[in-house]
Structures are given as structure tokens and as C-alpha cells.
Design a protein around this nucleic acid. Structure first.
Lengths: 84, 84
DNA sequence: TAGTTATTTAGACAAATATCTAAATTAAAA
DNA sequence: TTTTAATTTAGATATTTGTCTAAATAACTA
């Protein structure tokens, strides 16, 4: 749960997730969306990956990222616990 | 959303929430539960309050804290957006 | 093979965060 | 009214975090 909450505690990372919700993107496409350097975005992708919120797959010289919504179930369950 | 995710991104604060889930507690009772100074706990309570996750009510020399689960709905909706 | 492109890794640095001790505030009790 | 108790505020400090530039890695292209 720690990694999950940590990953979600950043606006840039939450935006990345909402981008990937609509379609898979490679690292460069994601970086182009932000006014931030590629290394910074790479770092955010790493944190999202560590939280299992996204999955990466190398395709040629590109690295494709896609969202993993199953991990959201953990969060869903956590929240539901407070709604009785 | 920022304040909410920030507040939840800490094990101590999440534990405080799960304590308050069962019964209201005053600041001292909450602090007694942890091996941490009262000022530190007071700071955590402040962050939870700013995120509207808890509510405080002064009763005599005590300050009673209770959970506000309605704010969890925001989080619930946010998560649901990813589960389509 | 040499050069270009996509991405990450490494290292530095400023800002944010969690914690502490000491002091201030507020209310009850003696 | 003086003291005690509950809690917060203030200020200090070490750690974590987000961002950057420069360098490294890996794969495509001419």
C-alpha cells in the first residue's frame, strides 16, 4: 500500500495514468505531453512501475507503457473499508 | 485531490484513520497509540484535517477527533474512473 | 561501421516532509 | 490564583522527493 499511495501522491504521475487510460504510449510520447525533461518523466514512470500501476514492454527502440488497473482494486478495497 | 493523496501518503496517518474508524478519540489517546511525540501526532492530525479526512471538536481541555468518511467518496470516484 | 534516436542511469541540488525539543495556549483542579 | 494537564505552535534538523544536466545504453539507419 505504501508504494501505491506514494505513486499516486504526485499530479504528474496521476496525469500519466489518465493518459494511459485511453491508450498505450511510449516514453517519448508521454514526455512530450509535459513541459519537463525526459529523465524526469522516466523517473515518474519508474515510480509508477514500482507501484505496479503501469507495465512496460520494450518494442524495438521504444518502450511502451500501459496502465494496470488491477492494482486499483487494492485501493478500492482500502477505501471501501472506510465506507463500512 | 492533492491534499487528499498527500494526507494518505503516510503510514501513521493511515493508521490514525483506521483507529478513528472504530471510535472517536482525543489527541492524547491517539498519541498514546504511537511511539512518537505528541507534537508529531498533532502535525499529522493537522494534515488529515486539512484534507477533510477528520474533524475536530474541542471538549473542555480535550480535542476530540472523528473521521469524515464522505471525503472518501472523492477518492472512490477517482479510482472508479480507472475501472471504466 | 558510424551516426542518430529513444530511453534510462547517475549525480547534484533545492524544496518538501517527518520528526524532535522547547515554548505558548487553554482549560481544569487544588 | 497557582499549578497541573492537554494540545498546539515554533523552530531546528535529517531525510525524502522532484527536477535538472550530463553520461550511458540500446537499437535503428545510412
Amino acid at each position: 500500500m505504501n508504494n501505491l499511495f506514494k505513486a499516486l501522491n504526485d499530479e504528474t504521475r496521476r496525469t500519466i495514468l489518465s493518459l494511459l487510460k485511453y491508450k498505450d504510449m511510449n516514453a517519448g510520447e508521454i514526455a512530450d505531453y509535459f513541459s519537463m525533461t525526459k529523465p524526469s518523466i522516466s523517473h515518474h514512470l519508474d515510480i509508477l512501475k514500482r507501484a505496479d500501476l503501469i507495465v512496460s514492454k520494450k518494442e524495438g527502440q521504444f518502450i511502451n507503457y500501459s496502465i494496470n488497473t488491477t492494482i486499483m482494486d487494492d485501493l478500492l478495497n482500502w477505501v471501501m473499508n472506510f465506507k463500512k
